[in-house]
Amino acid sequence: MLKRGSKARFILITLLLLSPGLLTFFLLFFYPMMVTLTRSLRPEGEQIGWTLEHYVTFLAEPRAREVILLTFVLSIGAVLCSVLLSIPLGLALRQKLRAHRFYRLTMITPRVVPGLIGALGLLLLFGSRGWVNLFLIRFVPFVNEPISINYTIPGLILFYTWLYFPFIALTTLAALEGLDPAIEEAADVAGANRWQVLRHVVIPLITPAILAGSVLTFMAAFGAFSIPLIAGGNHRPLSVEIYRQIDFTPARWSAASARAMIMAVLQVIFLTIYMRVLRRPIT
């Protein structure tokens, strides 16, 4: 048992150790969030007074629903595409074939280079003069004109997937590599063909990992800013909508702040629901 004096000392030291992290949290996150919140409730350009007009005017615009819907469509689309890409990729990579390490590095490349540069390359690749369109025109029947991919919603989802799939791919691969090979062999001996093993055994067992990875991909895609900023064209999700309020003079900080608060609340609500669903035993 600790004596009372040493117990007090223990608490004090713990608090001291925690203080840098807590201080960072309050000064660099909580305080800015409060500033954003206060700003969103002030009349534009004023330091006093309270108003809800920034929320009301934004939410009353028909554009608001469009912007919010677009943000969700892009992030959920990116999650779905990433899952569809990650499962075959994980299955291929766990075989440890030739150049295994190279492909593992390839998988994380989009997360290591600046996203903007990736987006630039994608714009060049999928542009009307890019290789993808040249390929389509040359080899695919009935395609004679460049197809527009850049600055469209499917194009954006493609770019998001390129940038944010590694989260899901990594958790999926880790889960696949953690599976006891005997479990699949058991299903195989029991008469399940390759597809049945995948459907009844492998996929159910890696689903928790896929869902965990998809939280990260969703968060990243929901808050994505650089990609839609340069590759979004007329499609502006919430983050770009916020930035546009302060990018032009006169900067509308209060309007931007109100939109930022709406975005933060939407993300927290969505994540909370998602976590609830995750916690529910899947089996």
């Binding site: 062999e185 058991a186 001996v189 029991a190 067992l205």
Partner: peptide
Amino acid sequence: PTYKRELGMVFQSFALFPHMTVFGNVEFP
């Protein structure tokens, strides 16, 4: 291929399907 050989096998690591009940495991084949 294995799945057409009509065998039964017991494994050192048991290799039960963790996401299925006892009933589901035995029912699988």
